[in-house]
Amino acid sequence: MQTLQDTKTLNVHSIESFGTYDGPGIRMVVFLQGCEFRCLYCGNADTFDCDAGDKTHIDDLFKEATHMKSYFSNGGGITFSGGEPCLQAKKLIPLMKRLKEEGMHICLDTNGHILNHYVEEMLQYVDLVLLDVKHIDSDQHEKITGRTNENTLKFAEYLEANQKQFWLRYVLVPDLSDQLEALHRLGQHFQDYTQLQKVEIQPYHKLGVHKWELMGMEYQLPNTPQNTPEQIAFAKDIYEQYFRDVVVN
């Protein structure tokens, strides 16, 4: 039976106090537990389990964020990432509401698979969405994540229709998501989105392999090499044909 305490706690994997990667400025990044995707190259495989992590009261997260507020003056703020934060949208709503009352900038890093009335309400308090699009081809997306991209593309449509600014994040994996046709198709699909502010190319890396090993899981892309500088520059050149602001993270 769920207690009142349970309704005010989030399953948190970890917190990064001075993040500069997940949104603008200096940010407090809260990585939440739980994800419905099983990305072959996931760098946070230890966030898969919804019930793992530390149960953290939203009051404690609010206090930590307010203590860091002075560091957010350059456009920074708080980012909710994961895992998939939309799985805990209902509990995030009251916390985000309090943070907005304090004037904080809120980012949501999501794969866009979940869009229900809780997520829609939560988005009212989000200033910027970091939308992870794994592949524009639905079959390839399912190969990478275990799910099709239908919900993710609908999520993007919702953001556009509701004038919610977002950045598009794309992991460039050799022989998996770096195909010429796929890069052009993604550009063509999103080129007219007025709420799309930036495209972030994220080079493939193996920094999370040890997490798979610690969990007794077999890493799915052991023989996939990291991108060459030429491969990254090639993808950037293509996306710059469609988008004003393309960066490599």
Results as ranks from 00 to 15, higher is better:
5 Q>A: 14
5 Q>P: 08
6 D>G: 04
8 K>W: 12
13 H>R: 10
13 H>I: 07
14 S>L: 05
21 Y>H: 14
29 V>P: 04
29 V>H: 02
30 V>Y: 03
31 F>L: 05
33 Q>S: 02
34 G>I: 00
35 C>Y: 04
36 E>C: 14
36 E>P: 09
37 F>I: 03
37 F>A: 01
38 R>T: 07
38 R>M: 08
38 R>N: 09
39 C>F: 02
40 L>C: 00
41 Y>K: 04
42 C>N: 04
44 N>E: 12
51 D>E: 15
56 T>G: 08
59 D>N: 13
63 K>V: 08
64 E>P: 06
66 T>G: 10
67 H>D: 11
68 M>R: 11
68 M>H: 15
68 M>V: 06
69 K>N: 14
71 Y>N: 05
81 S>V: 06
82 G>L: 03
82 G>C: 06
83 G>K: 01
84 E>Y: 07
84 E>A: 04
84 E>T: 00
89 A>I: 00
89 A>L: 02
89 A>Y: 05
90 K>Y: 14
91 K>Q: 12
91 K>W: 06
92 L>A: 00
93 I>G: 02
98 R>P: 08
99 L>G: 03
101 E>W: 10
102 E>W: 09
106 I>D: 01
108 L>G: 01
111 N>P: 01
114 I>C: 08
115 L>Q: 09
116 N>Q: 06
118 Y>R: 11
118 Y>N: 15
119 V>C: 08
119 V>L: 09
119 V>T: 05
120 E>M: 15
120 E>N: 13
122 M>A: 12
124 Q>H: 15
125 Y>K: 06
125 Y>P: 09
126 V>E: 04
127 D>V: 03
128 L>W: 01
129 V>G: 01
129 V>T: 03
131 L>Y: 01
132 D>C: 02
133 V>Y: 00
133 V>R: 01
134 K>M: 01
137 D>K: 11
139 D>Y: 13
140 Q>Y: 14
142 E>T: 13
143 K>M: 07
144 I>C: 00
145 T>A: 02
150 E>R: 12
153 L>P: 09
153 L>D: 05
156 A>L: 03
157 E>I: 09
158 Y>L: 13
159 L>K: 06
159 L>R: 04
161 A>Q: 15
162 N>L: 10
162 N>C: 07
165 Q>S: 15
167 W>H: 03
167 W>Y: 10
168 L>D: 02
169 R>G: 00
169 R>Q: 07
170 Y>W: 11
174 P>M: 05
176 L>V: 08
176 L>F: 13
177 S>Y: 03
180 L>Q: 15
181 E>D: 11
181 E>C: 08
182 A>N: 10
182 A>S: 15
183 L>H: 02
183 L>N: 02
184 H>W: 07
185 R>L: 14
186 L>G: 04
187 G>F: 04
187 G>Y: 01
189 H>F: 15
194 T>I: 12
196 L>I: 07
197 Q>E: 15
197 Q>S: 12
198 K>A: 07
199 V>P: 04
199 V>Y: 00
199 V>K: 00
200 E>D: 12
207 L>S: 11
207 L>D: 13
209 V>I: 12
214 L>D: 13
217 M>R: 11
217 M>N: 06
217 M>T: 02
224 T>M: 08
225 P>T: 11
226 Q>I: 14
228 T>Y: 09
229 P>D: 06
231 Q>C: 10
234 F>L: 10
235 A>Q: 04
237 D>C: 13
237 D>E: 15
239 Y>E: 02
240 E>C: 14
241 Q>R: 14
243 F>A: 11
243 F>H: 09
245 D>M: 10
248 V>L: 08
